[in-house]
Design a binder for these strands. Structure first.
Lengths: 365, 365
DNA sequence: GTAAATTTCGGGAACGTACCCGTTTTTAGG
DNA sequence: CCTAAAAACGGGTACGTTCCCGAAATTTAC
């Protein structure tokens, strides 16, 4: 069906003024070689006739191809797989823009990401979506590429002091704050709570701690915060530290695990028969967590919506590349609080774990 | 920047086989007049050369224009304004597809929506996004338009027994379930809770009740559910009913208001000095709710994410119109649980209330 | 005043695809 | 084996835009 009068094209404007198409084109694009008066007349007529450039024709003629790189870690699988799917989903639903997307992965954050970024020559890509492992060390590369005109988009993590164009992530402070408020609401009597995190020198984790501590004091004054436990994302370390924590504070009323690596902590709680007695808040969602939520063994998990992060990052990047609309310095998504009752809405996507392939791919769109 | 080798075009395939472009085109489109063997060779070569149709060229040649209607109520303002913004946002970020979008609004659900739909001639639009007021009464129009080839997309509400293509809304059952679980977690002692809804013959509200009742029994057996209160979306009725409720059950421990029209209920609670003592859960987010959440007077609100609903609905519709990808029968979004601590992430969008204009608009994209 | 330099403009090709129309090849029928 | 009909295929144009190149108009220089 193609009802609806088509808006005026460049040749309609030319005909209305009795001038050539070439001149109208020059006027529209502020190119040299057109009399200022003529230009004014053209613009006025364009306005009057409601001129709309036919983007299909423009793209065809210009034949511009966007070149985009997506470099992500494979670990943590349950997080970066859906994130990548989000990027793909957004990339797949682009029509009318020719582009090549190069997907690459590396084992885990901090292992090879820097080398991968550094291998990008100036001007090779129009945009790069990536997760900065060590923000400080990444800065030089990010700045170099940014200055060479490559739009750098951080996702899941951030390098705020670099010259990246924008960053998409979940608001970490709010995650921490939410955890504090939830524990405050669900632990009626006074008691003490603990936070188990990954590495505090990772910005996100530090932010979560800030949010947690501040809001615990504010919204749950009956709860006291024990010293933070850093697991350094190591299962052994997490096991040891958690056992230590529980030995020294057997009366603990709540635990907030602010990293997705929560399984070791949960195992210790399980073996000490504390699951269900201690209020536990986790981070992110993966298959092992589902039965625990369903059984009410843990209160909730703060889902960082990797799919939405990937999708959003790509949309923002594309919008900039096509329309030169500069995004905000950062986009902070709201985490989803997943309880037992709303779990079914999230569990489906998590259960179907697609594999991350390290292949080099390209697609047109 | 336009690095990246362009994929094979139709003429590359033709040249590789030593045949004409026209024949390749016929083969690709299953048109008559091509030898089956030739067709097979063409398809094989296309595969081998990684043929990708240039959508810009195709669109230019076909010159198809999509015609889309978006018919929404103005009331409830705080909900449908962002919903419309979501639609607009999605429509604005479409490149390479020429389309006309006709936005129209009517005062409130049930007032004029049916007439508006009925006024659409067969084949006038490729797709329609709308909110069915009375599902049963809307069915005939929806079916007529659907059969005539118009993709009908329900948003915010649904007409599940009609032949609409798909529907986008928040999962109402889960909303109710979530409310039950939250009250269960935050009310430690046994007590009774009430649900105040709009109209139970509206599918959404009935679903919320189902979810609430079922999960209250399951997850919060210490709470008993009082008879449901129907406010019929009338402020006077809501005031009267709420006063009545509180008089008969002064010991009430929690209230779940499952309609966005929660202000009358809150006013009664305020005047009886119960705000902060009774756990209150609301629905949706509007300016008046913000200070109440900030002050901890109400526990949380179940935000139905109108912006996301609008955006999603448009994306799904466009995807179908362009790529003929049929969506699921329905898309159920997860409501956001907005507490005091994560309120800032939502409050901004709510505070800036853009006006809904009833103008007829068109835009190219 | 004329020639040269400069500005302003128009003609026309090309981007990759779809499709009309005319030409060639194959098949059927006697 | 010839003819006619049908099937298979190729040439060429158009979609709306961009942009090169050359022509025309205008300004500048002497």
């Amino acid at each position: 069906m193609d009802r609806g009068k088509k808006p005026a094209g460049i040749k309609d404007v030319a005909r209305a003024l009795g001038i050539s198409i070439a001149t109208v084109d020059r006027a529209f694009h502020d190119r040299a070689g057109v009399n200022p008066k003529t230009r004014a007349r053209v613009l006025a007529m364009a306005q009057k006739l409601n001129y709309r450039p036919n983007l299909a024709a423009r793209n065809l003629k210009l034949n511009r191809r966007l070149s985009i790189a997506v470099y992500l870690p494979e670990q943590i699988h349950s997080f970066f797989t859906p994130l990548l799917e989000g990027v793909r989903s957004a990339a797949d639903s682009v029509f009318g823009v020719e582009m090549d997307v190069e997907y690459r992965t590396y084992p885990r954050m901090g292992e090879g990401d820097l080398a991968l970024l550094e291998s990008i020559p100036d001007g090779r890509f129009d945009g790069v979506i990536f997760t900065p492992g060590d923000p400080a060390k990444s800065e030089p590369v990010i700045n170099r590429l940014s200055r060479s005109g490559t739009a750098m988009v951080c996702v899941a993590s951030d390098a705020p002091h670099s010259e990246r164009m924008t960053a998409v992530s979940v608001d970490a402070y709010v995650s921490g704050a939410l955890a504090a408020e939830l524990l405050g609401h669900t632990i009626p009597r006074s008691g003490s709570v603990a936070m188990i995190t990954g590495e505090l020198h990772v910005l996100d984790h530090a932010e979560k701690l800030r949010g947690f501590a501040a809001n615990l004091a504010l919204l749950a004054p009956h709860l006291s915060l024990l010293p933070v436990v850093e697991s350094h994302e190591s299962p052994q370390e997490a096991l040891r530290q958690t056992r230590n924590l529980l030995k020294r504070h057997p009366e603990i009323a709540g635990i907030y695990v602010s990293t997705a690596n929560s399984l070791p902590v949960l195992r210790v709680l399980e073996e000490q028969q504390l699951l269900g007695k201690v209020q536990v808040l986790c981070t992110d969602l993966f298959p092992e967590l589902i039965p625990l939520l369903e059984g009410g063994r843990i209160l909730a998990t703060l889902y960082q919506r990797p799919f939405a992060q990937g999708k959003t990052a790509f949309e923002i990047l594309l919008r900039y590349l096509v329309e030169r609309i500069r995004p905000e310095r950062a986009t902070r998504l709201a985490p989803h609080t997943v309880f037992r009752s709303n779990l079914p809405l999230f569990a489906d996507r998590v259960r179907s774990k697609a594999r991350v392939t390290s292949a080099l791919e390209a697609r047109g769109a």
